[in-house]
Computed example of a mutant assay.
Amino acid sequence: MRIVLFEPEIPPNTGNIARLCAATKTPLHLIEPLGFKTDDKHLKRAGLDYWEHVKLTIHPSFEHFVRTVEPYRLVMASTKASVAHQNFQFQPIDTIVMGPETRGLPQEIMALSPHAVRIPIWGEVRSLNLSTATGILLYEAMRQTDLLPD
């Protein structure tokens, strides 16, 4: 299992996701351009002292990520996806791709995979916070694939 943040914009979200990745031993890949510097104090504070436990790779482009990592299956997260995350069959070597906070994944990235999921929400909210959504998807994927520790 891997997490990819495509052009993340908000340092605390990325820091929280890094902490999530440290807690689950999930590699984290960031796709540039980033909306912050990697030495940002808010990024470091949100990740607390867990950064040394994160397997972090920063890629200059999504093409570079795909070429160098060769992900098994890309699972795109989008509010526009037709399949709810709980109805999707995750696999242990999936790569969950999250888009930027203010605009989501662009169509050209979404088009790279037939696999896309959404998190059902009610009410007037358009989407969930990026770190919250990442946690929901990762833990559901780990639950389905028996990757959660006891």
Results as ranks from 00 to 15, higher is better:
71 P>C: 09
80 K>E: 12
72 Y>K: 13
137 L>R: 09
75 V>P: 02
119 I>T: 11
59 H>V: 01
1 M>D: 03
129 N>I: 14
147 L>H: 04
114 P>S: 10
123 G>N: 10
100 P>S: 08
104 G>A: 10
145 T>Q: 08
73 R>V: 11
38 T>C: 01
100 P>I: 06
75 V>G: 01
145 T>Y: 04
87 N>E: 15
110 M>Y: 04
91 Q>E: 11
71 P>G: 11
22 A>N: 06
97 V>H: 07
93 I>V: 14
86 Q>Y: 12
38 T>W: 00
62 F>S: 00
139 Y>H: 13
42 H>M: 08
145 T>L: 06
120 P>H: 07
134 T>R: 06
68 T>H: 14
53 H>Q: 12
81 A>R: 05
10 I>P: 01
85 H>L: 15
104 G>N: 10
145 T>N: 15
71 P>Y: 15
72 Y>L: 10
61 S>F: 02
133 A>I: 12
11 P>I: 02
42 H>Q: 10
38 T>Y: 03
20 L>D: 01
27 P>S: 00
47 G>I: 04
65 F>T: 02
18 A>F: 05
90 F>A: 06
33 P>K: 11
74 L>P: 00
13 N>P: 06
143 R>Q: 11
119 I>A: 09
87 N>F: 10
39 D>C: 00
134 T>S: 13
20 L>W: 02
94 D>C: 10
145 T>R: 07
146 D>T: 09
67 R>N: 14
28 L>P: 03
130 L>D: 00
133 A>H: 04
123 G>R: 10
148 L>W: 07
28 L>Y: 05
76 M>T: 01
64 H>P: 00
28 L>M: 11
103 R>I: 02
5 L>E: 02
23 A>Y: 04
84 A>F: 12
12 P>S: 14
6 F>C: 02
27 P>L: 04
125 V>G: 07
101 E>D: 13
127 S>G: 12
42 H>T: 07
42 H>D: 02
63 E>I: 09
10 I>Q: 03
28 L>A: 06
121 I>S: 05
30 L>A: 01
104 G>V: 04
136 I>L: 13
83 V>K: 15
135 G>S: 02
7 E>T: 15
9 E>K: 12
150 D>N: 14
45 R>Q: 13
26 T>Q: 12
126 R>Y: 08
84 A>P: 08
120 P>F: 08
57 T>A: 05
149 P>Q: 15
55 K>R: 11
49 D>C: 07
10 I>Y: 03
2 R>K: 15
108 E>Y: 12
94 D>S: 08
95 T>M: 09
76 M>V: 02
44 K>Q: 15
32 E>S: 14
69 V>F: 04
69 V>H: 00
46 A>Y: 00
91 Q>C: 11
10 I>F: 03
116 A>C: 11
107 Q>F: 08
110 M>A: 09
130 L>F: 10
87 N>Y: 10
112 L>F: 03
26 T>A: 08
30 L>I: 07
97 V>P: 04
52 E>A: 07
106 P>C: 04
109 I>P: 05
29 H>V: 04
41 K>M: 08
138 L>E: 02
15 G>L: 01
92 P>D: 08
81 A>S: 11
138 L>Y: 05
123 G>C: 09
70 E>Y: 07
84 A>W: 13
29 H>E: 01
146 D>Q: 13
136 I>S: 10
145 T>F: 05
134 T>A: 15
41 K>Y: 04
113 S>E: 08
2 R>P: 02
